[in-house]
Amino acid sequence: MQSTRRGFLAGMMAAGAVPATSWAEAGNPAYLAAARDSDGAYHLAGLARDGAGRFSIPLPGRGHAATAHPKHPEAIAFARRPGTFALVIDCLAGREITRLEAPEGRHFYGHGVFSQDGNLLFTPENDYDNGTGVIGVWDRSAHWDRVGAFSSGGTGPHEITRLPGQDVLVVANGGIETHPETGRAKLNIPDMRPNLSYITANGHLLEQVEPPVADHMNSLRHLAVNADGLVACALQWQGDRFDAPALLAIHRQGGALQFAMASDTQHLQMQAYGGSVSFSGDGSHIAVTSPRGGVAQIFDRDGAFLTQHSLEDVCGAAPATGTGFIVTTGTGEVAEIDASGKYQKLSQHTRQWDNHLIAI
C-alpha cells in the first residue's frame, strides 16, 4: 500500500499536480524519538500512540531530539551536543531531504523548533570561541538556507520551544560554557548563570528570569509548554547531588520562577538530574524524568508532588490522553503512566531510546 502511494505521488509530481501531504500520509505517528539499535546504528523513529513503530530512518550519528513540521510529514533530527548535523527528513518517503551543518565555530545542542507557519527553523547553538549562545535561523522555503542568527540571551542554550499560537520563542539557557576541544567538560561552573528567556522570532528579548543567586548552579535544560502558555523546566544541578535544589521550575510570563520538588527521600532518587519534562495530555499535570535515578515524578500544574514511577533508564516523556504521559527508556520500553499510579507497558523494542520523546 505504501509503495503504491509513493508511486501515485511520483506520478502526480511528474504531471505537475502534487497533493498536499500530512502526517497521516506517513502512518499518522504520534511521537518522534532518536534511538540506538542493537547493532550500534542510529535512527529516528516514528511511534504510534500505542508505542508501535511507524517508520525508522537512519542517522549519521547519535541523535538527541527532533522537531516535527507543524503541517507536513517532515522532521528535523538533531545530533547530540556537541554535534554539528541536523538532518531534514521526509518521513513519508523515508529519505533525507538535506543536511544542515552548524557554521564554523558553532555546534548544535540537540534541539530546535519551527515557526508557527513552519517556514522557519530555529536552532540553539554554541558560539564556543566567544562562550555565548546563539539561535540560528533557517528558511525552509529557500532550500533551507541559513538566513540569520541572534543571541539566545545567555550561555549554553539547550532546548528551545515556542508559545502556542504565536512566534515567541522560549529558550532554556543552561548557563554552562563548553568547547569542542574539551568535549563535554563544563568550563564555568563557579560562574554559571542559567536563565529562561522569551525572545521574538526576529531576536528581540522580551523577558528573562533566573534561579535565585544561591542556586546559580541549577542549569535550566529542558522545556514543555502548555496550551495556555505555562512553561515547565527540567533542571540539572551541577553541585553535590545530595544538596540538589528543586529540579522542576514552572513559569508564566510576567511572574517569577516557581520551584517544585518531592520529599527529601524521593527527591534524592532523582540524583540531581532532570532529563525530560512534559505536560499531560489535558495540561493538568507535569512529569519530570531522571534516567540516572530511574524515576519519573509527577506533579500537578501548581507544583504539588503527587507520585513517582520507577523505570530503569527512563528519560523520554510526552503527553498521552487525559492526565497521562508516554515515557521511553534506554532499555527499549515504551510505557504509559499517570498521576493515579497507573503504569502500563505498551511495547518493547530492541533498541535504546535516547533522551527525548517528541509529540507531533
Rank of each mutant, 00 (worst) to 15 (best):
S152Y: 09
G322F: 08
N119V: 03
A287N: 12
T123S: 06
G330A: 06
L311D: 03
A30N: 07
A17K: 13
N202H: 08
A48D: 15
H107S: 09
D90R: 07
M1L: 07
L92P: 10
M270P: 04
G131F: 13
K342Y: 09
A262S: 08
T67W: 00
H179L: 02
Y31V: 01
P211Q: 04
R106Q: 11
P180I: 03
S347Q: 15
A66P: 06
R252I: 00
G165Y: 09
E25G: 01
Q297E: 10
M261T: 10
A26N: 06
G174C: 10
G112F: 11
I298H: 07
I250C: 00
G63I: 00
A227W: 06
V113F: 11
I89W: 12
L346G: 02
S115E: 04
L223S: 01
A34P: 08
L357P: 11
T307E: 11
Y31F: 15
Q344K: 14
I326K: 06
H285E: 09
S152R: 05
Q236H: 05
A41I: 01
L44A: 05
A304T: 14
D338V: 03
K345Y: 01
R193W: 02
D300N: 15
Q2R: 15
W237R: 01
Y273K: 08
G7Q: 15
D117N: 06
I360V: 14
F299H: 13
A30D: 13
P60D: 08
V18H: 03
A320C: 04
G133Y: 01
L206R: 10
A65D: 15
I250V: 01
G153C: 02
T323G: 15
D50R: 10
Q2F: 12
G154S: 08
V18F: 10
A15V: 02
A30M: 13
S3R: 11
E312M: 06
A65Q: 08
A149L: 03
V327D: 13
G274Y: 07
E333C: 02
F259W: 10
R292W: 08
Q208T: 11
H64R: 07
A249F: 13
E74K: 05
G7H: 14
C233H: 00
G83Q: 10
A317T: 13
R54C: 14
Y273R: 05
A246N: 05
P124F: 04
I250M: 04
R36W: 03
R292M: 11
H251E: 00
G165T: 03
F108T: 02
I360K: 05
A52E: 10
G183K: 07
P164R: 04
L247M: 15
R81S: 07
T331P: 06
K345D: 00
A272H: 06
R95C: 03
P164E: 08
F78Q: 04
K345W: 00
G174P: 08
Q297V: 07
P291H: 15
L220M: 15
G316K: 14
A244C: 07
L196S: 01
